[in-house]
């Protein structure tokens, strides 16, 4: 059991802005919360490869094909960094992976929506990666060292993800009537799910206060969401895209943009597994994992035999 003295000393370190490293003492609950949050982040990167991967073979120019493939590849890399960071807490990647494939672990609901046209790829870059960057910039200052460092690396690599999406969306918004139609349609579909990415309102977010107390997060869900909305309103206007919210209005008093009610019923139902693509995403990831088993096994068996041979030879 964690004693009160240990807890107090730990909190003092956090309040001093110190970084917690893997071998440092930490409350059991801190470790558990981190494993939950970090692995959820990792699963999201991996499942996030699927909606975008859906357009690699159909990208409309060689340049866009390479950009998209490099981006999807980066997501595999980010998942890998995050799993590695989680492994410093004593978890195994395999266990974590099986927890979301066959158990109850979650990943970001945003990836349970389909990518219907190529404009969806641009909008994912702009909105979804834009939201992820807001979140990850905060997490790069997280109190847990390995998690902060993984996020720092991810932020560095991800800046091109948002930029390429915004750049191509601007071209489409300024392109042929068909391109403009695709662009606006994609924004209409992705806007609300993106706002849900920041999680429930602070009042409905049981983990938030604790994560902030431990400086795993430094801002609340609603603060991050507001920061994002303020920024996106400007960016949308700059490229002539409208946001599908009649209640968006600048508030002189607060200096922020007020926005309409987020459809939380939809959010909770997608979180629970009832979204348009949940089942397909899970099927695809399980298939990759299960089809990969004989490959992973073969490589291990080869390594075992080789060691044996080398042992005999010497």
């Amino acid at each position: 059991m964690d004693t009160q003295q240990q807890l107090d000393e730990f909190q003092k370190r956090i309040d001093n802005g110190e970084t917690i490293e893997p071998k440092d003492w930490m409350p059991e609950r801190y470790r558990k919360q981190l494993i939950r949050m970090m692995s959820q982040h990792a699963h999201s990167e991996i499942v996030g490869m699927l909606p975008e991967g859906n357009w690699i073979t159909r990208a409309p120019s060689l340049k866009r094909k390479m950009v998209l493939l490099a981006k999807v590849q980066d997501e595999a890399g980010h998942g890998l960094y995050l799993y590695s960071a989680t492994e410093t807490l004593g978890a195994e990647r395999r266990e974590l992976v099986e927890d979301y494939l066959y158990g109850n672990a979650k990943y970001s609901s945003i990836f349970n929506y389909p990518t219907l046209t190529y404009a969806d790829i641009c909008v994912i870059g702009w909105l979804v990666d834009g939201a992820a960057i807001v979140n990850q910039t905060m997490l790069a200052k997280s109190s847990y060292g390995p998690y902060a460092r993984a996020n720092l690396r991810i932020c560095k690599e991800e800046s091109f993800h948002k930029k390429q999406g915004y750049e191509m969306l601007a071209k489409m918004a300024d392109g042929t009537p068909e391109q403009q139609r695709m662009a606006q349609d994609a924004v209409n579909r992705w806007w609300w799910p993106t706002l849900m990415m920041f999680g429930p309102h602070d009042s409905d977010s049981p983990n938030s206060a604790e994560l902030i107390k431990w400086a795993v997060k430094t801002k609340t869900n609603d603060e991050l969401r507001q920061h994002f909305v303020d920024r996106m309103v400007m960016e949308a206007e700059a490229i002539g895209i409208s946001l599908p919210d009649p209640n968006l209005k600048y508030n002189e008093e607060t200096g922020h943009w007020d926005f309409g009610d987020i459809p939380w019923d939809e959010f909770w139902s997608v979180v629970k597994g009832d979204g348009p693509m949940n089942r397909e995403r899970m099927r695809a990831r399980r298939k990759a994992y299960e089809d990969g088993e004989w490959v992973r096994e073969a490589a291990m068996e080869y390594a075992r035999k080789k060691k044996l041979r080398e042992g005999k030879a010497s």
Partner: peptide
Amino acid sequence: SEWAGHGPELEEDL
């Protein structure tokens, strides 16, 4: 490129 997201292990996906 059809393998992206479907590789036998993350490292091999990369």
